[in-house]
């Protein structure tokens, strides 16, 4: 039966879960906001540019990947829109970004559930790259 207790429990669970997530979200969010305002990400993107031909993308697209991996999908889409990509290239970069994005924050959230996250991050980055290579070959 649905009683007042049901609502009380739902609200209590919701607030508890939200609080647990808030504790990890705020520090990471502050960190990535600072990161966004430093030249670190463009520098890393430059180092990765030569490898982009393996997934059929121009060198400049590495910035979109790095922004997506470290910050979020919106940052990556902002960069993608500034490039002139074909439908195939957009599909490739979208797939790579969907496998791995927002890594700092999402890993912190996953860690909250009690797992070791280094393996998860490696898995995501590996699958991200493989999906790019795969789609570049099949489309």
């Amino acid at each position: 039966m649905v009683k007042a207790d049901t609502c009380r429990r739902g609200l209590a669970n919701g607030i508890w879960v939200l609080w647990e997530l808030t504790k990890v979200t705020i520090p990471i969010y502050i960190f990535i906001t600072f990161l966004k305002h430093t030249p670190v990400l463009p520098w890393v993107a430059d180092q990765c540019a030569p490898f982009m031909s393996l997934v059929g993308l121009p060198g400049e697209a590495s910035l979109a990947l790095i922004m997506g991996y470290c910050l979020n999908l919106y940052a990556a889409i902002g960069v993608i829109l500034s490039l002139d990509l074909t439908t195939k290239q957009i599909t490739i970069i979208a797939s790579m970004l969907l496998f791995a994005h927002h890594l700092f924050l999402e890993s912190a959230i996953a860690k909250k559930t009690g797992v070791k996250v280094s393996g998860l991050v490696a898995l995501r980055l590996g699958l991200s790259f493989l999906s790019g290579v795969f789609l570049n070959l099949v489309i």
Binding site: T6, C7, R9, G10, L11, N13, G14, L18, T25, Y29
Partner: peptide, 22 residues
């Protein structure tokens, strides 16, 4: 930005936790 992010999560999590209990 982080407060807004938390607010967005709250809009999802609290109603759905509620819903799960119901």
């Amino acid at each position: 930005g982080s407060l807004y992010n938390i607010f967005q999560m709250a809009c999802f999590i609290i109603p759905i936790m509620f819903f799960i209990e119901v």
